[in-house]
């Protein structure tokens, strides 16, 4: 089993960061465990903590009254949950819920944000990496919006 530091260094979003930055991030991290079905964050909550998944999976959901939550995305091992901690107004846009028993690394986003302010090089690195997550999410959302399975192909 990997240590916290190894797990963080292996995650794609942090891969290749300078050792001192990895140490700093590790310093902001803590192993946490959740049962299935636990709400990690709710839409509108302050985004001060984000997660890196070690085991299990986490769903991002949209809640709307009178209906079951709509599950729009799931994140799995090695993937981060949440980027709102890095972008104003630092509030979650979606609910996050564990869908299996999960081992996560909880990272102190508010603390990291402060470090980024002090060290623009770190700020640039994290902004660049999470911007990439955002781009991927945007592309996936566009693809999802097309609802491609809705009306195309009959069986060829």
């Amino acid at each position: 089993m990997l240590t916290l530091a190894q797990e963080i260094a292996a995650a794609e979003v942090f891969a290749g960061l300078a050792p001192e930055y990895l140490d700093l991030i590790t310093g902001c991290g803590q192993n946490v465990h959740f049962d299935a079905g636990v709400i990690l964050q709710r839409e509108g909550d302050p985004a001060d903590v984000f997660y890196l998944i070690r085991r299990g999976s986490v769903a991002l959901e949209v809640h709307h009254p009178g209906a079951e939550p709509i599950r729009i995305l799931t994140e799995g091992p090695g993937e981060p949950v949440g980027w709102s901690w890095l972008f104003e107004p630092y509030r979650w846009h979606l609910d996050a819920r564990t869908i299996q028993p999960c081992s996560l690394i909880a990272l102190d986003g508010a603390c990291l944000r402060g470090k980024c302010e002090q060290d623009p090089a770190l700020g640039y690195e994290l902004m660049r990496r999470f911007a990439r997550c955002l781009v991927e999410r945007l592309e996936a959302t566009q693809f999802q919006l097309l609802d491609v399975y809705g009306n195309a192909r009959v069986g060829v």
């Binding site: 299935a36 999976s57 769903a59 959901e61 079951e68 939550p69 709509i70 599950r71 729009i72 995305l73 799931t74 799995g76 819920r97 869908i99 299996q100 996936a140 693809f143 999802q144 609802d147 399975y149």
Partner: peptide, 23 residues
């Protein structure tokens, strides 16, 4: 397996099929 959207009873992947390629 992944689906574009699901209710809470679905414990599998949610998201576009291309995300499975990386996984």
């Amino acid at each position: 397996i992944t689906v574009d959207s699901a209710g809470p009873e679905w414990i599998g992947h949610v998201g576009v099929v291309t995300r499975l390629i990386g996984r």
